[in-house]
């Protein structure tokens, strides 16, 4: 008999060494996630994958699965918590979707749709952050960076380079480039690198490929990030509760 955990009452098998997220993905159970990508080392920073294991909050992308865990995942309360976290990500940056090339293909936006997010709820921080357009084929727009470090990990773990890092502390954290000038053009990144493509939001974009697919026909215009969504979105805001 293989070992199992229980996610929302469903038995899910797992092998030693797997995280709750690994087990859920293998069983086709959707746990919202943003900083996690199979194949890269787990990070545990966005906290969208937060679940309650035997009443305790844990990140499913980093928490090892262990026999008998009772996991709450797809609950109204957790949906509210996750929506709030998404709103926090929106308002700490400058996410002006109508003017963003990633719109429709953006994981953050898709998660926001999935969680019925109508607005950012909190006062906007409107930070001033820099754009780096130095590279011939890539552009960095830090306004949209959510500090998920997927590009950092992809570059180190898959591309065998070390193009990106996160610098600074607290709300001032920001993406930096590992090159003498700090500019992307001076780094050894190439368009084919995973790091060039992995950004879940519109913070690292490939130049000259804008609007090839029209708005309205893009990935998340046609599909929900989890195909389990209810049909109607209530237009009155709900408030999260997390006691």
């Amino acid at each position: 008999m293989s070992k199992t955990i229980k996610i929302d009452g469903v038995d899910v098998p797992f092998e030693d060494g797997q995280t709750i997220m690994d087990a859920a993905l293998a069983a086709d159970i959707y746990i919202p996630h943003l900083c996690h990508k199979p194949g890269l080392s787990p990070h545990g920073s966005c906290k969208l994958c937060t679940v309650d294991v035997d009443g305790r909050a844990v990140s499913s992308c980093t928490m090892p699965a262990s026999e008998g865990q009772q996991i709450a995942n797809n609950t109204p309360a957790l949906k509210e918590v996750r929506k709030t976290i998404i709103q926090m990500l929106f308002i700490e940056g400058n996410h002006l979707c109508p003017s963003c090339e990633k719109t429709g293909d953006c994981t953050l936006q898709a998660l926001a749709y999935h969680h019925d997010m109508l607005d950012g709820h909190f006062p906007q921080f409107y930070p001033r952050r820099n754009v780096d357009a130095s590279h011939p084929t890539l552009i960095i727009d830090r306004d949209r960076c959510i500090l998920c470090e997927l590009c950092v990990r992809a570059s180190r773990e898959v591309d065998g380079k070390n193009v990106f890092a996160i610098a600074g502390r607290g709300i001032k954290r920001q993406l930096i480039v590992n090159s003498p000038s700090g500019k992307l053009a001076d780094s050894d990144i190439e368009t084919e690198d995973l790091a060039s493509h992995i950004c879940p939001v519109g913070a690292i974009l490939i130049k000259d490929h804008g609007y090839e697919v029209p708005i309205g026909r893009r990935t998340f215009d046609l599909h929900s990030i989890a195909e389990t969504d209810l049909e109607q979105v209530i237009l009155k805001k709900t408030v999260h509760h997390d006691a």
């Binding site: 926001a112 749709y113 019925d116 708005i215 209810l230 049909e231 109607q232 209530i234 237009l235 009155k236």
Partner: peptide, 13 residues
């Protein structure tokens, strides 16, 4: 009624 939208037309763009 409590207003709601069909999910396909919830968009930020």
């Amino acid at each position: 009624k409590e207003p709601s939208l069909p999910r396909e037309i919830l968009h930020y763009d």
